[in-house]
Design a protein around this nucleic acid. Sequence first.
DNA 1: GCCTCACTGTAGACCGTTCTCCGCAGCCCT
DNA 2: AGGGCTGCGGAGAACGGTCTACAGTGAGGC
Lengths: 338, 338
Amino acid sequence: MSIARSRSVTISDVAQTAGVSRAAVSKVIRNAYGVSPAMRVRVEAAIAELGYRPSVAARALRGSSYRLALEIPWVGARFMTQIVEGAQLAVDGTPYQLVLAPAEGHAYGTLESMADGMVDGIIAIAPLTDPEWLEAFAARVPVVMIGRHDHPRGYDTVVGDDVGGANAVMDHLLGLGHRRIVHLTEPETVTAPGSGTPHSVRLQVYRDRMATAGLSDLVEVVRRDDSRAGTLAATRELLARDDRPTAIFAGHDDIAMDALAGVAAAGLTGRVAVTGYDDTDLAQHPLIDLTSVDQQGVEMGARAATMLLERLQGRTEPRRHVATATLRVRGSSGRVVS
Amino acid sequence: MSIARSRSVTISDVAQTAGVSRAAVSKVIRNAYGVSPAMRVRVEAAIAELGYRPSVAARALRGSSYRLALEIPWVGARFMTQIVEGAQLAVDGTPYQLVLAPAEGHAYGTLESMADGMVDGIIAIAPLTDPEWLEAFAARVPVVMIGRHDHPRGYDTVVGDDVGGANAVMDHLLGLGHRRIVHLTEPETVTAPGSGTPHSVRLQVYRDRMATAGLSDLVEVVRRDDSRAGTLAATRELLARDDRPTAIFAGHDDIAMDALAGVAAAGLTGRVAVTGYDDTDLAQHPLIDLTSVDQQGVEMGARAATMLLERLQGRTEPRRHVATATLRVRGSSGRVVS
DNA sequence: GCCTCACTGTAGACCGTTCTCCGCAGCCCT
DNA sequence: AGGGCTGCGGAGAACGGTCTACAGTGAGGC
């Protein structure tokens, strides 16, 4: 038995087997113009016989890699599942392959790394990225950003209707008679006013609605800790007070899970309303039964991918898709304030 | 203002700016032998000045891409979060970048696609892949498989102690006095006897333990449906029977979530014991409080990545890591059978 | 019978790296 | 002084595709 290194089969091997030029083989696999039926048959037979697969690296060097990157801040975030599912759906049936790029810490490194010739385009969820930097980046590689409220020139955006969604939450809670409503959200960096992140918008709506309801002095914003323990502690402390909140408006479902854990730890399950955002599969689970805002994550992912594909077709003017937000009322907020 | 296409800066530009050859620049960025301190300084200055970044495609064509792929069956699976986190940890600090490849349907296409020159090595979670095919595949690109009980020649494996874990679950449930224990698991394809998948092993242990406990005629295996609704219906039907099970041993935590939903829908919450597997973050949530088996997912991911890095260093003999399995008893199974 | 033209297929440059030689100094050793 | 050796840097061939130009060929128009 030969220890022969299994050197992979190249386009030259196929060309030789089929008795044609490399260029001809290239044309066939790219479905390019100028191929006779007879040649196509012969080349395809040779490809099948040899089990030839084009090298992505070689392709990418001159043409395209047929890979799209989807950069995600953290794989564990439930919302990501929806985005990924949608993007995958949109990419299915095209020659493109979706790869996920988890960003460790800041997204810049990951984004640049992806752009270094490995992918033809990038979908990114990176709320904290500097707009100027992004514009420059998007000049180099096609980009679609998810969850940004800015109006860029060089890339597309897909974003939820955070104003509508947050208002729906506040409508709901205020309508139930809640006054001590606390907003549990991401750390300050993610919610800086005017930063255009979804969470900054939701926070602003919270403040506004509290103000117009005459509840300005009851406004309370609690930041989520990166550690679950920290968030839990903050929540417990909050709930230990005499004037404890009767409702918690959480920035998204994962945060809401922490809130629910805190409420449970304080022995107050069912006595403090909790709402989430994103309507993840967890929210629908009977043991969680979380009121949440459905912003069509799957649709968002699909739209983002579709937009990116359009850009790869040549479109350059920026486009923007705003997903509708719909409140899904469930048990976690269902009890009217006693 | 120039509409100049921002052609990215190449190694030639750097070489020209620094007044050296391309080969010299290449040596510097690869930290290769044969570089004087003086030249290094000049080259690095030029790199910084021009903002040069090596093209991954060009690198991959000749050398390596410095990318590792982690193929995952479904992004939504909670267990994946642990694996990814661990792998990322192990890769941090190395020149390698981790990319995630979601497999749509069968893994073969995704794996081949990744191997087509885009990555230097592959970590895969693909229980259903044919061993022979895998051996051939692994001859082409370094591979580490997660969750396979076979003993391959050409690739490494990281697997949990499914025998120990499943036995711990059965010990626990039998010890609590349960007799009508049903096993809720994946579809048959994933649990075929002798297939070596974790779920086939857990199933076998379940059967064996039921048999040795003299409960052979109470053995009941329910298959999970891909659709949540289907699983829910099956569970409800199960629980509607007169001789309904008093305990459900679920194949993993996501399945256990379905089981809990079914139990809740039947109005039996707290009266049917449910156990999961993987000890995901959900299991630890107070509202779920799921007894589960901790098989150190993070450690498994890290070990897989480390093994792959070793292979890239030149190791060829196959290695195998078996993660210990520890039962974490929580409320979902805590009540002794009445 | 000649010119044009559409259709096929090929030759060969090119993409941006890596990597294997190879040359050139300068130094030490005999 | 001649002959290695060592340390540094460069030339140039890969790598496996894509793509632009161009050559050949037969048909159709005049």
